[in-house]
Amino acid sequence: MSELRFDDVTVRYGHLTAVDRVSLTVPAGQVVGLVGESGSGKSTLARAAVGLAPVSGGRILLDGRPVPTRGRRRPLQMVFQDPYSSLDPRMSIGESVAEALPPGRSRDERRAEVYRLLELVHLDPGKAAVRPALLSGGQRQRVALARALAGDPQVVIADEITSALDVSIQGAVLNLVRELQRELGLSLLFISHNLAVVRYVASHVAVMRGGVIVEEGPTDRVLADPGHDYTRELLAAVPGSTPSSRPRRTP
């Protein structure tokens, strides 16, 4: 179990302050949802954690120590939003997943592990030799997910990973996310614009806008009793949130 903590983090690109003194904690073994409009700095915050964005102020800590951004062992993994750009078009999907496996295993073990991971994300392991070009967007995202899990991470940052997924796999992925969180004690920062999805996965939610976190708290409290106007606006925009237009489904 590991705790990921953003401590007064600022990220600047030139004059633009993309993330402005954000403090946020993902407690060990918990799922924290991060919602907000695009350009609000969600992805930048995530990228800063894995060393892809320059941190110009504050600290990002994993169990109280700086997140390692060098070396083969990377306890913090990230899954990207765009499945079209997150897989190397020249590499088979099996190779992409294998690349992220921790070193020091036999060839056969690696292959078995790749197969297991592909199976885990509902892909035919027989397709391991296939290039991403032959997969649809949803299938690619599953590969990306398998790759992140391959690194045997303690904390995973999922950046809008379901926004490009099918509903059927989305459900399975969300179930998987919850299972992993419970059984592996995986800590997760789950970035999404879909409040219904965040509600389902995350025990805590933070709402971001313009580089700052405008509201934060237990998910049920924030959704039931939003304290910030922007949170209210988000809630109103959820499809199906206008009861008149859509009959409630019976379970």
Binding site: V50, R74, F80, S85, R90, M91, E99, A144, R147
Partner: peptide
């Protein structure tokens, strides 16, 4: 993003160059 993903996975820069960048 696949370059970022490889970096996050701890793949070294030279290796990324050879495996991901040059082929592309």
């Amino acid at each position: 993003d696949f370059i970022s993903a490889a970096r996050i996975a701890g793949v070294g820069r030279l290796r990324i160059l050879v495996r991901h960048v040059l082929p592309n």
